[in-house]
Each structure stands twice: as structure tokens, then as C-alpha cells.
Computed example of a mutant assay.
Amino acid sequence: MSASQDPTPRTVELLRSATGHYTARNAAGAQVAFGQGEDLLSPVELLLAALAGCSAVTVDTATARSAEPSDFRVEASGRQIVDENGGNRLEGLHLSFHLAFPDDAAGRKAAGMVERLVTLSHDKYCTVSRTLEHGTAVRHDVSVACAADDTR
């Protein structure tokens, strides 16, 4: 294992608050609500947000050292399909970066970095896009209990 690899597993806990309504929480206590319904991102939209966010962090961190952007938007899109095995998945994932910087030396320096940073993010730094492109197995285990004193 190289010195840059972090063997610590990344984890989130998902809690159900109502039918189709969930909260994901990390060990530090940060959380996001999602699910099905008004004012909620769907799980697929969260995946797209993670994809956009992962690349955005790389671009933002580096360019902000030179200039604060006046506009910073990343659109993530994809088409949900049913594949040849009858399974749902996304295809045609695409990120579209829309950035603006001040028209001064620092802003032009930041603007000149964006294309290279987006490429580096895709090719090297963004764990989300690299995992999606390379694929990885998803395993699971299940524990179910029926409690006699359940008052729900």
C-alpha cells in the first residue's frame, strides 16, 4: 500500500424517518435528508450530486487560492436506463462546469487553471467518478428482528 492510501473505511449511516424519507449521517454528525417526495433529492440525484461535488472540490480548492469565483456551478446529468439484464442504471454521465472569475490578473490565472483541474479530477483525484468508471463490487448483509414488545 502506498503512503497516500488511507485504509480507513468511509461510512455513512442511513436512518428512516418516514416511508420514503431518509437521513444519511457520517461519523462527524453531518447529515443530509433525501428520498422520495417534495423537497427531497432522490438517491440517483444524490449520486449525481456526489459526482459533481467530488470534481467541484478539486477545482474550487485550487482556483480559490488565486481568485474567488463570481459564479461556480457544476451540472451533473445522466440517463436512467434498464439494461440488457433488466437492471436499472445510469449511462451517459456528464459534468458541465460553469465558472466565472474577476477580470483581473488573479481571475485570469484561476480561469486558466480550470480545464487542467477538471481533467486531473477526472483522471486522478475524484474518487466518485473513478469508482463509477472502474466499477466495484457492492456486497451486503442483512439482520432482521421481530420484537414482541414493538409498540409501533
Rank of each mutant, 00 (worst) to 15 (best):
residue 45 E to M: 01
residue 110 A to N: 07
residue 5 Q to N: 15
residue 124 K to M: 05
residue 59 V to P: 01
residue 34 F to E: 12
residue 96 S to E: 12
residue 37 G to H: 07
residue 1 M to T: 07
residue 92 G to S: 09
residue 12 V to T: 11
residue 93 L to H: 07
residue 103 D to H: 05
residue 46 L to R: 00
residue 79 R to G: 06
residue 125 Y to L: 14
residue 114 V to K: 09
residue 121 S to P: 04
residue 22 Y to G: 09
residue 76 A to W: 00
residue 140 H to D: 06
residue 28 A to I: 12
residue 56 A to I: 03
residue 40 L to T: 01
residue 82 V to P: 00
residue 83 D to Y: 01
residue 34 F to Q: 11
residue 120 L to V: 07
residue 145 A to C: 09
residue 71 D to N: 08
residue 116 R to F: 02
residue 105 A to Q: 12
residue 148 A to I: 13
residue 48 L to H: 03
residue 2 S to Q: 09
residue 79 R to P: 00
residue 11 T to D: 03
residue 1 M to I: 05
residue 128 V to G: 05
residue 78 G to C: 11
residue 74 V to Q: 03
residue 71 D to V: 14
residue 131 T to D: 06
residue 117 L to M: 09
residue 72 F to H: 04
residue 1 M to H: 07
residue 28 A to Q: 15
residue 85 N to Y: 08
residue 37 G to A: 12
residue 2 S to I: 08
residue 148 A to Q: 14
residue 55 S to F: 00
residue 58 T to A: 10
residue 89 R to C: 13
residue 38 E to F: 06
residue 30 A to T: 11
residue 56 A to Q: 03
residue 42 S to Y: 04
residue 59 V to A: 05
residue 96 S to H: 13
residue 136 T to N: 10
residue 138 V to K: 12
residue 128 V to H: 05
residue 80 Q to A: 13
residue 134 H to D: 02
residue 115 E to M: 01
residue 123 D to K: 10
residue 55 S to V: 00
residue 15 L to Q: 08
residue 101 F to Q: 10
residue 29 G to T: 06
residue 29 G to A: 05
residue 27 A to E: 15
residue 11 T to V: 08
residue 2 S to Y: 02
residue 35 G to L: 03
residue 110 A to P: 07
residue 92 G to R: 08
residue 65 R to A: 15
residue 108 R to P: 01
residue 11 T to W: 00
residue 141 D to K: 04
residue 129 S to A: 07
residue 105 A to L: 08
residue 57 V to W: 06
residue 46 L to P: 00
residue 132 L to E: 03
residue 73 R to V: 13
residue 103 D to R: 07
residue 102 P to M: 10
residue 137 A to V: 14
residue 44 V to D: 02
residue 11 T to Y: 00
residue 100 A to M: 08
residue 99 L to V: 15
residue 55 S to A: 04
residue 105 A to S: 11
residue 19 T to H: 14
residue 103 D to T: 02
residue 131 T to C: 08
residue 93 L to A: 11
residue 56 A to P: 00
residue 16 R to C: 05
residue 132 L to R: 04
residue 20 G to C: 06
residue 132 L to K: 03
residue 108 R to D: 07
residue 34 F to K: 11
residue 101 F to L: 12
residue 87 G to E: 05
residue 9 P to E: 12
residue 87 G to N: 08
residue 98 H to S: 12
residue 5 Q to I: 15
residue 151 T to P: 01
residue 57 V to S: 06
residue 133 E to I: 01
residue 124 K to W: 01
residue 48 L to N: 02
residue 148 A to W: 06
residue 36 Q to I: 10
residue 75 E to K: 07
residue 127 T to L: 12
residue 11 T to Q: 11
residue 68 E to V: 14
residue 43 P to T: 14
residue 91 E to Y: 02
residue 2 S to R: 11
residue 92 G to C: 07
residue 47 L to R: 02
residue 82 V to L: 03
residue 130 R to K: 13
residue 5 Q to F: 15
residue 103 D to E: 13
residue 88 N to P: 02
residue 49 A to C: 12
residue 65 R to Q: 15
residue 62 A to Q: 12
residue 87 G to S: 08
residue 65 R to D: 10
residue 9 P to K: 12
residue 110 A to L: 11
residue 109 K to D: 15
residue 102 P to D: 06
residue 146 C to E: 07
residue 37 G to I: 10
residue 25 R to S: 15
residue 112 G to I: 10
residue 17 S to G: 05
residue 79 R to K: 14
residue 38 E to D: 15
residue 139 R to G: 13
